[in-house]
């Protein structure tokens, strides 16, 4: 895997997909994110790392406005995708989220069949005009999530009956099915065993050929394995952002170094 990544290391030529400028997030009285500015590139895996409670998940949820569902969250600053401000009043979060998909920490398949889980997004967004197209989207998505071979014979079985790793890949397939441009992953492997984790990590590496992937992880090894760019968060600040290899081998900020060497976190 390491050698595969070696020739994909060059990400500078990809253009910027998401750009944030001076983002502040408040949870009630709590200042959760302090002035974060960064540019996330297309067709790249970007990892957010940092000790728990550092705000990396909060920041991730700003990128597709999932924080809207929390009453007390307040966001300032600017976040734009393809140059369009996502907090512009004209933006419908529903459309935004179709473009910026999300995979959650705990696998959360709906209590429906595997097929219906994946078909849910295309159905609500009207991506398929007939049953054949829908079948095709479902199959493609399951293939892209590298789970097709395991479930193709039991598409009508409930999604909740799969193992944890399969459930998470099903959730990835579900997110892929709405043909997003960005995939946000909030610690997607934290509830999985090592084998399932390896499968999902492999999948993430494949996904970057089509999508801009942003992954929050508490595991530095995982960030090193799957990402090209890494941002380190600490107590709501984004401390350092750069090429993954640079961050891990030659951190600029003493806090990053302390975290990487295991002295904070």
């Amino acid at each position: 895997m390491k050698d595969v990544r070696a020739d994909e290391r060059d990400t500078t030529m990809n253009d910027v997909k998401i750009e944030t400028k001076g983002v502040q997030v408040y949870y009630g009285e709590n200042h959760a994110i302090k002035d974060v500015s960064l540019a996330i590139k297309d067709k790249t895996v970007t990892a957010f790392i940092g000790p728990s409670g550092c705000g990396k998940s909060t920041f991730l949820r700003c990128l597709n406005r999932m924080n809207d569902t929390i009453d007390i969250a307040r966001i300032e600053g600017e976040i734009s995708i393809d140059g369009e401000d996502i907090y512009d009043p004209r933006v419908d979060p529903v459309q935004l989220r179709a473009k910026v998909g999300m995979v959650f920490q705990k696998p959360n398949p709906f209590p429906k069949s595997i097929f219906d889980n994946v078909a849910y997004g295309p159905k609500i967004h009207g991506l398929a005009s007939n049953k054949a197209e829908l079948d095709e989207i479902v199959e493609t998505s399951l293939r892209r999530a590298a789970i097709w071979d395991e479930v193709k014979d039991r598409l009508q079985a409930p999604g909740t009956g799969l193992s944890g790793g399969q459930q998470q890949r099903l959730c990835i397939a579900r997110a892929v099915a709405t043909s997003p441009e960005v995939l946000l992953m909030d610690e997607p492997c934290s509830a999985l065993d090592p084998i399932a984790t390896a499968q999902v990590e492999e999948l993430i590496s494949e996904l970057r050929t089509r999508y801009s992937v942003v992954i929050v992880t508490h595991s530095m090894q995982q960030a090193a394995r799957v990402s090209q760019k890494t941002a380190f968060f600490h107590l709501g600040d984004m401390v350092e952002y750069g090429e993954t290899d640079d961050i891990f081998t030659n951190p600029q900020d003493p806090r990053t170094e302390k975290y990487i060497t295991g002295r904070i976190g």
């Binding site: 369009e84 933006v91 419908d92 459309q95 199959e139 293939r143």
Partner: peptide, 25 residues
């Protein structure tokens, strides 16, 4: 592998709501 169109069928701008979104809203 039959592909999902990599260029999505929905409008590229998120600033305008398309007809379907308006209906859904």
């Amino acid at each position: 592998m039959t592909a999902i169109p990599d260029t999505p069928s929905r409008p590229s701008s998120i600033l305008e709501a398309d007809a379907r979104t308006r209906k859904r809203n």
